[in-house]
Amino acid sequence: MDDSNFEDFKPRFGASTVCMQADIMGRACGIIGNNGPIDTQGANKAGQFFQLCDQANLPIIFLNNTTGFMVGKEYEQAGMVKHGSKMIQAVSNVRVPKITLYIGASFGAGNYAMGGISYAPDLLFSWPNATTGVMAGQSAARTMSTVAKVRAERTGKTIEQEAIDEQEAKIEALFSRQEDVYFTSGRCLDHGVIDPRDTRRVLGFALDTVLESRQRDLQPNAFGVARL
Rank of each mutant, 00 (worst) to 15 (best):
M1I: 02
D3N: 11
G14S: 09
A15P: 03
M25E: 11
I31D: 07
I32K: 08
I32V: 15
D39P: 01
T40F: 00
N44I: 00
K45G: 12
A46W: 03
F49W: 04
D54W: 01
N57P: 01
I60T: 10
F62G: 03
L63C: 10
G68H: 06
G72V: 02
E74C: 01
E76K: 05
G79K: 02
V81Y: 10
G84D: 04
G84W: 04
S85L: 10
V91G: 03
S92K: 13
R95D: 14
T100M: 08
A105M: 13
G108F: 09
A109E: 10
G110A: 09
M114N: 06
G116Q: 07
I117N: 06
P121R: 07
P128Y: 06
N129V: 15
T131V: 14
G133V: 11
V134A: 14
V134R: 07
Q138N: 08
T143P: 00
M144F: 08
V147F: 15
T155S: 14
G156L: 13
I159W: 03
E166R: 15
E172V: 05
R177L: 09
Q178D: 12
D180R: 13
S185C: 07
H191I: 00
H191C: 03
R201I: 02
L203V: 04
F205P: 01
L207N: 06
T209H: 12
L211T: 13
E212T: 10
Q219Y: 03
A226F: 09
A226I: 12
